[in-house]
Design a protein around this nucleic acid. Sequence first.
DNA 1: AATGAATGAGGATTCATTCAT
DNA 2: CATGAATGAATCCTCATTCAT
Lengths: 208, 208, 208, 208
Amino acid sequence: MAETKTGGGRRRRTSAASSARRSELLAIAAEMFATRGYAQTTVRDIADEAGILSGSLYHHFSSKEAMLTELLQDFLGGLRERFVRIVEEGDSPKEILDSLIRSSFDAIHETPHAVALYQKESSYLATVAGFDFVAETSRDIEGVWLGVLDAGRMAGAFRKDLDRDLVYRCIRDAVWSSVHWYRPGGRLSHDTMADQYIALLHDGLTRP
Amino acid sequence: MAETKTGGGRRRRTSAASSARRSELLAIAAEMFATRGYAQTTVRDIADEAGILSGSLYHHFSSKEAMLTELLQDFLGGLRERFVRIVEEGDSPKEILDSLIRSSFDAIHETPHAVALYQKESSYLATVAGFDFVAETSRDIEGVWLGVLDAGRMAGAFRKDLDRDLVYRCIRDAVWSSVHWYRPGGRLSHDTMADQYIALLHDGLTRP
Amino acid sequence: MAETKTGGGRRRRTSAASSARRSELLAIAAEMFATRGYAQTTVRDIADEAGILSGSLYHHFSSKEAMLTELLQDFLGGLRERFVRIVEEGDSPKEILDSLIRSSFDAIHETPHAVALYQKESSYLATVAGFDFVAETSRDIEGVWLGVLDAGRMAGAFRKDLDRDLVYRCIRDAVWSSVHWYRPGGRLSHDTMADQYIALLHDGLTRP
Amino acid sequence: MAETKTGGGRRRRTSAASSARRSELLAIAAEMFATRGYAQTTVRDIADEAGILSGSLYHHFSSKEAMLTELLQDFLGGLRERFVRIVEEGDSPKEILDSLIRSSFDAIHETPHAVALYQKESSYLATVAGFDFVAETSRDIEGVWLGVLDAGRMAGAFRKDLDRDLVYRCIRDAVWSSVHWYRPGGRLSHDTMADQYIALLHDGLTRP
DNA sequence: AATGAATGAGGATTCATTCAT
DNA sequence: CATGAATGAATCCTCATTCAT
């Protein structure tokens, strides 16, 4: 009955058979959660979009919350892994920071719904039992960024007259918020956006 | 709806729209809407916090939505006025931009709930009938910022190799998002935050 | 506290002073009860129309129901009295029947709201405790009409091949229902309507 | 609203709109709406009578109003069809008029709740958005009756000294009002009632 | 895998009524 | 006489979830 989700296996007991439908449903849920918010999305909205009755969703997921959990776990886990790998590659702080930013825009481009979902619900979920992993992983990720920022300051690559936490949050908020207005195929590609954000960040708006 | 009708029509809208109790209730609603979101806040939550029964709220407001409308209208109207006045004072683009940023942090400091509320609900409200004023006023405000950015580029104060819209959104998102983590009385005052955001924006992270 | 209504005194303890306002309010209530129905009329509707707050109504009437009671008692009492007097005048059955019909149209003309109210609510009220007087008076009135009908059949004035009760109800329904479409000052005066109903009743649609 | 969406769109509206349960619930609603009035009937009254919880009704109907709409649409549509067919059969005006009356009593006998419901709520509904079809169909039906009356006057079958509209309304009110006191299986069958109403209408109360 | 009927716990709103001022 | 604030019960409706088929 209770769908386990303990990581390790990551996939359910039913391997490929249900997997297709499952992923489909999850993708639908992701889009709706991202667009209108988790609480504002009804189980019936998702089922309607999938062309089934709401009750039938419970064949695939034990609850609406389980869908959210799975979505966030996959996203956050992947993101942390991604970031950790970048740091491990061991370039200079500036290069690492740029890579983190570029990687963030990649994530926005590849899984916009997951990013938007996280943006929208993370603050709320931080207080909900069973979603501790969100705060945890967020903290890990934060650690990665702050580490790079610190390293860069020590190395003299980044100025020291600005509050470290403030700088981190400024970057984080600016980068992730762009998911709300970024349109794939629009005037600005995500690569261009990354370039410009990086340029602005490093040299400022006033200097050439 | 049945506002007047008193014959002389000597008050309502004036004394009825602003009584001590009314403002109190509105403040409570603002805080809850901002913290847990409009849809997640029940009328009973607000009433409980105010120490009355949920039905009694309807003596003061015609609906939950009316509270939201009033809150946003007051906030957005005030913000636009504030910004327009700054531009009219006619300093250099750079000075105007700095003033806009400082003024934004003032708003975050003075009415954090309204700001957070707007941050949280504006995208959703853009699609809801009866909340056109939100999109409208947002457009007006956007126009003010973009105007200053344009003026600064023409005057050579701001670099031209960055996309204007992207720069605007970057600033906007970074500044307003800070409402979610700014704590009045915390380590960083809102004035300091403004200073640092401005410093980072103009000179970048790499330069001294 | 409890407003008595036991008949005998018929007027409240406060004589003329409150009487004016009271009647005004009662007239407003009558119109609204008649137009949208008793249950569909809110105490606030009445108060709004009178230019006071709903709570203030309770200075004049002990409850919404009390207004209804007073309205119906006045109307039904008057109607019965009226009808009884006609019968007592002792003309021929046909003349009495015509007078009853004419008198009904007079009532429709003079107090259309009370008539419509009675039409609309009587069936429901017949089952409500405290409104026994409605059924009672209705029965009395019915007795008057049936008496005339019987007398006319005995005297050979009315045909006997039609069910007496059916004839009564047919007349009653046709006459009283006209309150819903009669417009004072319209094409047909209430006198003309009475004439035509009587003509149709006595001679039929086919005969000259 | 979200009716189809099944892709093939192979049913809904057909099997969903008419299931055994649905009809059952609709019949219960009809009876209660007719007896105590639409507004006075709560969704819970209906659900209680059906032995389910009030919320469960919304599995079958989208709202209380939707039940009313469906009930009235079915009734009025059927009635109009019925009447139109009678006129098309092309007998003499007198015969057509009699058939219309008889058909009305048939309707009263077969679907007393729908008739009573219509009697009770039509005047109110005429003013409610979304119920225009009530006024429309009523107008159509009225047209049918008035047409017959006109034809009969021209042909010399009906007297001309009575106002046409008044005669129509008199007949209509008398006939339809009988639904409130007609009891199937009672002393008077609906056929007998039709006979007597017709006899009274044509020859009057005074003549043999 | 899916349907269709139902549950039960709310949620916003309405409204007659009370009462201190 | 009237106000303005509040009550408390009821009303329509929503929605995650269950379960027999």
